[in-house]
Amino acid sequence: MITFIIIGVIVVLLVAVLVGAYNKLVALDQRADQAFADIDVQLKQRNDLIPNLVETVKGYASHEQGTLDAVTRARAAAAGATSVNDKVAADNMLTGALGKLFAVAEAYPDLKANTNFLELQRELSDIENKLAAARRFFNNAVAEFNAVRAQFPTVLFAGMFGFGADKPFFEVDAGDRAAMTAAPPSVKF
């Protein structure tokens, strides 16, 4: 009789550990998904702002068509990206194209003084700040999920629950990181 009670207590404890670990993984997975959705919102806002920015610059720098086309292509790629890795690559491409667009704008004093351009630049800067915060929140949620998934005893059965792989971080690719640390761009308006 005592043996059955001991076995019953062990089974109940084991089930409690499994349920607790599963619920923690589900909660952290949902938090990471919600954080990624926040990034999506900021990326959509930025993508919606870009056509207005391009149109404003077009009026002043119509012969800079290559730069304008690069921004448009990068925006289209960003809008079509679905996975974290695709969004990271598209975001890096769009950030580079926007940097070139602002460098072009530097050569046009009338454009730099245009109130519409200044407002669009302010809005874009605000969105970029919100996007950076959303990326940090997402990466924190991913780090927490990955850490809990790899901890004992969760690592023993995370795969059985469908949580067998680490979630990817939203990070700058190695080439862009090297370019940023080597010579950061200086753009003044």
Rank of each mutant, 00 (worst) to 15 (best):
Y22L: 04
A178C: 02
A78H: 09
T56F: 09
I7L: 15
Q42K: 08
G20T: 13
E144F: 01
I2G: 08
N85Q: 11
L14I: 07
A183N: 12
E64W: 02
A76F: 05
D38Y: 05
D48Q: 04
A103M: 09
N52W: 06
A76K: 01
K58D: 00
E128F: 00
V11L: 14
D86Q: 15
G8V: 04
V172W: 07
D33K: 15
A78D: 11
E128V: 01
T181Q: 11
L49E: 00
G20N: 13
A105F: 10
L18C: 11
K112R: 15
G8A: 10
N140Q: 15
L118M: 15
V54T: 04
V26D: 02
N139M: 09
N116F: 08
A182K: 10
L120F: 13
A16I: 10
I2K: 13
I10F: 10
F117N: 10
V26Q: 06
K24A: 15
R149W: 10
V54A: 00
L101V: 01
A178D: 13
Y22S: 08
N52G: 14
Q30H: 02
F145D: 06
V104G: 05
E144T: 14
A89C: 04
A16W: 04
A143G: 14
N146I: 04
E119D: 15
K167I: 06
Y108S: 13
F102Y: 15
G164E: 08
V11R: 07
L156P: 07
L25T: 02
M93C: 01
V54I: 05
G162H: 06
N116K: 14
G80C: 05
I5Y: 13
L13K: 00
R135K: 12
E144K: 10
A150V: 03
R122K: 15
L68H: 00
A105L: 12
T56L: 06
V15T: 11
T154C: 08
F145A: 01
N47K: 04
I127C: 07
R31D: 06
S125D: 03
A89L: 02
